[in-house]
Design a protein around this nucleic acid. Structure first.
Length: 489
RNA sequence: CGGGGCGUAGCGUAGCCCGGUAUCGCGCUUGCUUUGGGAGCAAGAGGUCGCAGGUUCAAAUCCUGCCGCCCCGACCA
């Protein structure tokens, strides 16, 4: 009976563990349409906090929100040859409307470059109109063959930024800047460390000049591409006649960038921090930070404890106003459930701090606080509990990042590695392997074919090994770059 | 689209080989007792056994066809 309620352990089968956790913790559910996902309030609460934070960061970097249509004329996608080739296999196409067959099929947006740059072309005449910095929060559709909750679904929620600039250098700077914003968010808020770098040619976004990504390591040592930023060059501005008159009076094509992150990050969050008891949500993204579980025997005690819980919640509210910090406190006053049952439930949901208060605590003017990530349980005076909570939350936030980074480094291989050893590692537990690459597509393809590992990115300088491998992992020729190899989602 | 597995109450399942009017657990309802790590007892409600044919006195069970879902690959955020 108790066994029904337990999750499979991560070690047994990471995939099954992840799936069950997402369903059991009520983050999401399967929809009637195969491959689509329903995000439930528990999951959406995390998304809302992510969205709010990212939106603030975008505003700080000068971007404005807008909204573009879900339908894109098929001809728009065809205007950029590589783009349509890349997305054609996964497009959902509407052929009928109002009971009649449409003259031109409408594609349900898989991404919005085409429709957005067609509008940019209308809005931009002069270099004075640039840069144009737009973001949209939207859902997109990509008809994937195989889907996984949060990680790959037919329809997903995301944010896509689209910008136009007067010079190539400025566009490149923007591309890098937004990659940095993503990194700050993932490390600072999600406590999920990432490796940033440029994608190889084969992994580049269809239609982009260069693609950069943030790569995180999950607890099964697989990589998750958590966000991408593309320098689109003039590919789309040429396709859509996005031109402007320069300061010198010449007519020029603008330089574009696009960048996006999606609800996939929720999957990354789960696979980075959660344990066999359930979710672990970093405090900065937790929809509620503190849950109060009242403990009582008699009705009289119940009334007393609940009344005290209300008072504590009120005090914390006053405290948070003074401190200009946020604390969302929930009192679990459900009757008929023993406290232990409530503990298990809130642990499953990943609430960072549980506060237990019972008659004994009230008498002593104290409460018990339990930290979700390490289970540490300690008694605190009610007089200073606001400070204590804040302290626990901030050290939990920090320690989650440190733990994740330590785990990643422990499972990384830098420096010399033979191809045989590489194959052995990829067949076994997997790892992030930093290895030399000659930049030949053939080597990349063969390694992928033989090991299922792919180049996640060519890491930025700060992530590169001190000892740069001099030869290509596969062919042994002189290596021109260092590549990060891993199996991925 | 290949390979594997599964469809029985809201959820998880037994029964199928060897046909005889559907098992158990969780959850739900009501009542009493409980409540510092997953409560106990009692009484209840809830099912055209994925769908359609066929065989049979009789089908969850046997036969044929179909549908759906999950997992593993190919594709990808």
């Amino acid at each position: 009976m108790a066994d029904d309620k337990k999750l499979p352990t991560r070690a047994e089968d990471f995939s099954a563990w992840y799936n069950e956790l997402v369903l059991k913790s009520e983050l999401a559910d399967y929809s009637p349409v195969r491959g689509c996902m329903v995000i439930r309030p528990n999951g959406y609460g995390i998304w809302e906090r992510m969205q709010r934070q990212l939106d603030d960061m975008f505003k700080e970097t000068g971007h404005q929100n807008a909204y573009f249509p879900v339908f894109i004329p098929e001809s728009f996608l065809r205007k950029e040859a590589e783009h349509v080739e890349g997305f054609a296999p996964e497009m959902a196409v509407v052929t009928h409307g109002g009971g009649k067959e449409l003259e031109e099929p409408l594609v349900v947006r898989p991404t919005s470059e085409t429709i957005i740059y067609s509008m940019f072309a209308k809005w931009v005449q002069s270099y004075r109109d640039l840069p144009l910095l737009i973001n949209q929060w939207a859902n997109v559709v990509r008809w994937e063959m195989r889907t996984r909750l949060f990680l790959r679904t037919l329809e997903f929620l995301w944010q896509e930024g689209h910008t136009a600039h007067a010079t190539e250098a400025e566009a490149e700077m923007e591309t890098r800047k937004m990659l940095g914003v993503y990194r700050d968010f993932m490390e600072g808020w999600m406590a999920m460390p990432v490796i940033t770098g440029r994608k190889s040619e084969s992994e580049r976004f269809a239609g982009a000049l260069r693609t950069y990504s943030c790569e995180a390591m999950m607890q099964d040592n697989k990589a998750l591409q958590a966000g991408t930023s593309h320098n689109l060059g003039q590919n789309f501005s040429k396709a859509f006649d996005l031109t402007f008159q320069s300061e010198g009076g010449t007519l020029e094509h603008a330089w574009n960038t696009s960048w996006g992150v999606s609800t996939r990050m929720i999957g990354g969050l789960v696979m980075t921090h959660s344990d066999d008891k359930g979710l672990v949500v970093p405090p900065l993204l937790a929809p509620i930070e503190v849950v109060i579980v009242p403990i009582y025997r008699s009705d009289e005690q119940r009334a007393q404890v609940l009344e005290a819980a209300d008072r504590i919640k009120e005090n914390l509210r006053a405290w948070e106003r003074r401190r200009e910090s946020r604390l969302r406190v929930h009192i679990d006053s459900r009757d008929g459930l023993k406290p232990g049952a409530k503990y298990y439930e809130w642990e499953l949901r990943g609430v960072p701090i549980r506060m237990e208060i019972g008659p004994r605590d009230l008498e002593a003017n104290q409460a018990v606080l339990v930290r979700r990530d390490n289970g540490v349980k300690q008694v605190y005076s009610l007089d200073t509990i606001g400070e204590q909570i804040q302290e626990i939350l901030s050290s939990m936030q920090e320690e989650l990042l440190i733990a994740a980074r330590d785990r990643r480094e422990k499972n990384s291989i830098r420096g010399k590695i033979t191809y045989d050893k590489f194959k052995e590692v990829m067949e076994g537990d997997g790892a992030f392997v930093y290895a030399g690459w000659c930049e030949a597509a053939a080597c990349e393809a063969q390694i992928k074919e033989e090991t299922k590992a792919t180049i996640r990115c060519l890491p930025d300088e700060e992530f590169r090994s001190a000892e740069v491998p001099q030869t290509c992992l596969l062919c042994g020729e002189k290596a021109t770059v260092e590549a990060l190899w891993a199996k991925s989602y």
